[in-house]
Simulated scan of single mutants.
Amino acid sequence: MDVLSDAVAAMRNGRAHSSRTRFTAPWGVRFAPFAGAGFHVVLQGTCWVLPTRGEPVRLGVGDLVLLPHGRAHGLADAPTTPLRDAGDPGSLPPAPPPDGDPAATVLLCGAYLLDRARPHPLLTELPEVVHLSSRVGAHPELRTVLDLLGAELDHPREGSTGIVPALLDTLLLYALRAWHEEQARHRTATGWARALRDPAVAASLRAIHRDPAHPWTVASLGAVAGLSRSPFARRFTALVGRPPLAYLTWWRMTLAAQLLRADDRPVARVAEQVGYTSEYAFSKAFRRAYDTSPGRYRRAPS
């Protein structure tokens, strides 16, 4: 798997949900904080997203906003309109059949449940509001997914129960990809937006994610990146935010936690799958990361 897909998979918890809603001015809704990421897409009309911190953002037809940290926010026809409580972004009632009102605002809203106990830095460094514009020619793949999702919600048929969650998962990945690609085009891009586009660092990250059990060293990762040991370590640390082997250990422990909760495979097998030949060494590393033993972690409520 690639780094972006892995990062999302590591945090996903349960199925995404969405609804299509229509509002007639004046209107305003307040979304409470929730354990996930929310999104809103404007299908007709305009509106404003009102973050807890920062300035209001105006949205036009085709615009998408992702609220990656699940923070409270509002949506309204104008920044000054009073807000009423609405739960999380996927809890709005479905839109009634179209009434032909050209002044109405039609939104596609949804929410992803995420486990924030061990968030991937690729997602935690995102801003409070990720705004992807609908300008002509921008993000055509994202537009295609939105069109497909809207069609399934408008006219559910056989297979829609499986298609809609799959499209929601695809939408999240396309939105994250689009944002990181936009950031990488700026010369001032830093962190993961730049790391994913840096040939050397990206190559080493892909190697770690492709084979986390491999006995990687800084030198062998540097060879994958095409750099000598010291320049590679400096470059990786500057962009990823931690040294190469520290990130490798962090990712191994993240995978181990997933494997322990996935089924009842022996702890020794989990240790082997994430690169530990000794169950004792694995348990010690796991306890450092989670402050509990692998067995107790497995038995604890998720």
Score class of each variant (00 low, 15 high):
L83R: 05
L83D: 07
D85W: 08
G87Y: 04
D88Q: 10
D88M: 01
D88T: 14
G90D: 13
P93M: 06
P94M: 05
A95T: 12
P96F: 10
P96G: 13
P97E: 15
D101H: 01
P102K: 01
T105L: 05
L107P: 04
L108N: 12
A111I: 01
L113V: 04
D115A: 14
A117P: 00
P119E: 10
H120Q: 09
L122Q: 12
L123A: 08
L123K: 05
T124W: 09
T124N: 06
E125P: 03
L132I: 12
S133L: 11
S134W: 10
R135G: 14
R135S: 15
V136I: 06
G137F: 02
G137L: 04
A138K: 11
H139E: 13
P140I: 07
L142I: 05
L142D: 09
T144M: 09
V145Y: 02
L146R: 14
L148S: 11
L149F: 04
G150P: 01
A151R: 13
E152L: 03
H155V: 11
H155Y: 06
P156G: 11
R157K: 07
E158R: 12
G159N: 09
T161Y: 01
P165H: 10
P165L: 07
A166K: 07
L167I: 08
D169G: 14
A175Q: 08
L176Y: 06
A178N: 02
W179G: 00
W179S: 01
R185D: 06
R187M: 05
T188G: 03
